[in-house]
Simulated scan of single mutants.
Amino acid sequence: MPNERLRDALLRNGLTLEQVAKAVGVDQKTVERWITKNRTPYPKHRHKIAAMARESETYLWPDSIAPERKAETAAAELVQVFPHRNAVPVELWDRLIKEASETVEILVHAALFLVERPRFTKDLTAKAAAGARIRLVFGDPESSSVALRGEEEQLGDGTLAARIRNALTSYRPLVGVDGVEMRFHNTTLYNSIFRFDDEMIINTHVYGFQGAHAPSLHLRRLSAGDLFETYSESFESVWNLAKPATF
């Protein structure tokens, strides 16, 4: 079975078989076999290819990393645990937003706290103009999942939907901006995901608690890691199920 993840990653980054072969010091036919026959490269080659393809080793070759190494690397990916989202320092949010240059992916219900920052949408617009890919997924205010979450968080009938609509008015300037895509989801939001290039804030969700009062994880992506990639794949799954946002 071909390694479609590797093929896609190379194509997405404009890398030819010849370029990869030259970079890692192997024959072009060897690189072709890594793709068409799903052969697994040596570790030193995997690391270099993953860096070139801007993907993790565990994503490109899921079975190549020993379980014990995966566990060790996952622990290294976890930078810090915060008792609740409100405890994440403002300085950390500032740095993540400022330094992101390639990817911003946000999966939330409303993320109203982000647009309380006066320059947030302007910063996203500037990043998109500079070539960054911005993908924002909000809870559909008309959906059953939003209504249920509002009940579970004891917010009162329609409160969460109203909060989402309120947030969307602040995100409206991003409508039609090249490089910015926004969608609505109707899924169970197990975690809010805030990705800025190779770092993430994961806001876990706890039954009966509002998101701001639930624990948060600061993750930093490592090539051989699995933790960051798990949340990245989760974002992608929700994104593929979501529909274009309407304002």
Rank of each mutant, 00 (worst) to 15 (best):
P2N: 07
R5M: 11
R5T: 09
R7Y: 08
L10F: 08
R12Q: 14
T16E: 04
L17W: 06
E18G: 03
A21L: 08
K22F: 10
V24W: 06
D27H: 15
R33T: 14
T36S: 15
K37A: 15
Y42P: 01
H45W: 06
A51W: 11
A53M: 05
S56G: 15
Y59H: 12
Y59S: 07
W61S: 13
P62H: 12
I65R: 14
A66Q: 08
K70G: 02
E72F: 11
T73D: 10
E77W: 00
V79M: 04
V81A: 15
V81M: 11
P83F: 05
P83C: 01
P83A: 03
R85H: 12
N86E: 14
A87L: 09
P89V: 12
P89F: 03
E91L: 10
E91K: 06
E91M: 00
W93Y: 13
K98F: 12
E99C: 11
S101G: 10
E102Q: 13
A111V: 01
A111S: 08
L112C: 00
R117H: 09
F120H: 11
L124I: 02
T125S: 05
A126K: 11
K127N: 03
A128N: 09
A130C: 07
A130Y: 04
R133V: 13
I134W: 10
I134Q: 03
L136Y: 04
L136R: 11
V137A: 11
F138H: 06
G139M: 13
P141Y: 13
S144I: 11
R149D: 06
R149W: 09
G150V: 03
E153S: 13
Q154W: 13
L155Q: 14
D157W: 05
G158I: 08
L160V: 05
A161P: 09
A161W: 12
R165Y: 01
L168M: 13
L168H: 08
T169F: 00
S170M: 09
S170F: 01
R172G: 00
L174F: 08
V175M: 14
V175N: 02
V175F: 03
D178C: 06
G179K: 05
M182C: 06
H185K: 13
H185G: 09
N186T: 04
T187L: 04
L189G: 06
L189S: 07
Y190A: 15
Y190E: 09
Y190M: 05
N191Q: 07
S192P: 05
I193V: 14
I193S: 01
F194V: 07
F194T: 02
R195G: 02
F196E: 01
D197E: 00
I201G: 03
N203Q: 08
N203R: 02
V206E: 07
Y207E: 04
Y207G: 00
Q210H: 06
H213A: 08
P215C: 07
L222S: 10
S223M: 03
A224M: 12
G225F: 02
L227C: 14
F228I: 04
S234K: 14
E236F: 05
S237N: 13
V238R: 04
L241D: 14
L241P: 05
A245E: 10
A245F: 01
F247P: 11
F247M: 13
